[in-house]
Design a protein around this nucleic acid. Structure first.
Length: 274
DNA sequence: CACCCCACCTGCGTGC
DNA sequence: TGCACGCAGGTGGGGT
């Protein structure tokens, strides 16, 4: 589910409630997530510690805890982080509940269990972060850097955009939207774009991610923010999920193709292969 | 190394 | 109604 904008919206929703607050107790569900620290480790390192920092790296959320402990969460496809106060009816598919000071509770719910919950003791660098690429909003990301990263690559542009080891946080929905906005064909070889192409890609990437954050993210089926609300950016999608519907720019039917096992939506008239 | 494909899960919509 | 199938915001490991 969540790509960079959704994780960012969740982070901003959690921060006012969680920062400075102490974890009192941890409840762990029956089934494991795809990647999850052993229950003993979670119980050893989380309860009793206050949360003093919340950060996002790509689609990862980092909880910085007292004493240099880091809790790393990834929401996979269907993960949600829901804030609740007081006793509430137990939700299905909840894998972790952080019971906080003041009767607040944070539940990690994940139907498909592709999510991750990993704890790292003081001094241990969270390993998954070493694979995370640059942040799209970083000044280190320029059209020149993108062109260099793509140089000699035969893989498709859409595949390249979704590679979190290059640019972090762009998933299937936003990759489709960015390429439509930049008027580039998703199957174009990444290594063949001009500097002008990369300039448009970067500009549209930042514009669309910012717009999606401002709209509270995109809900196509599962995504909810930390208060249990849907996003609104799905109302602004121009190609994703619109197979057979008229392109909002030229009227041509939007096409769906499969790239690397994922659906790609694009307008064959606006996004010419060159 | 670059690239491709599949595995990992559950639920939902569609068509027979 | 039941069932089989395809599909879903992601990542990572194995093969070529």
């Amino acid at each position: 589910m969540p790509e960079l904008p959704e994780v960012e919206v969740i982070l901003r929703g959690l921060a006012p409630s969680l920062l400075g607050r102490r974890i009192l107790r941890l409840v762990i569900g029956e089934k494991r997530l795809r990647r999850e620290s052993p229950p003993e480790e979670l119980q050893e390192w989380l309860p009793g510690r206050a949360i003093f920092g919340l950060e996002r790296r790509g689609k990862y959320l980092l909880f910085r805890l007292e004493g240099g402990v880091t809790l790393l969460l990834h929401l996979g496809m269907t993960g949600r982080l829901l804030l609740g106060s007081g006793p509430s009816p137990p939700l299905p598919h909840v894998h972790l509940v952080l019971e906080m000071e003041g009767g607040l509770a944070l539940a990690f719910q994940d139907v498909r269990r592709f999510g991750q919950a990993l704890v790292f003791p003081p001094g241990v660098e969270p390993a998954p972060l070493s694979q995370v690429g640059r942040e799209p909003f970083s000044r280190e990301v320029t059209p020149e850097w993108l062109a260099e990263a793509a140089r000699g690559r035969s893989r498709t542009l859409k595949n390249f955009l979704m590679d979190g080891r290059v640019l972090a946080g762009i998933g299937n929905i936003y990759a489709c939207e960015i390429l439509f906005a930049a008027r580039l064909h998703p199957a174009a070889p990444a290594g063949r774009l001009s500097l002008g192409d990369w300039t448009r890609v970067l500009k549209e990437t930042r514009r669309i991610l910012n717009a999606a954050i401002a709209k509270g993210g995109t809900t196509v089926s599962d995504y909810l923010n930390s208060r249990g609300e849907t996003g609104l950016f799905q109302l602004e999608l121009l190609v994703y999920g619109r197979e057979g519907e008229p392109c909002r720019r030229c009227g041509q039917a939007v096409v769906r193709v499969s790239q690397g096992g994922r659906s790609t939506f694009f307008c064959p008239k606006c996004q010419k292969e060159r």
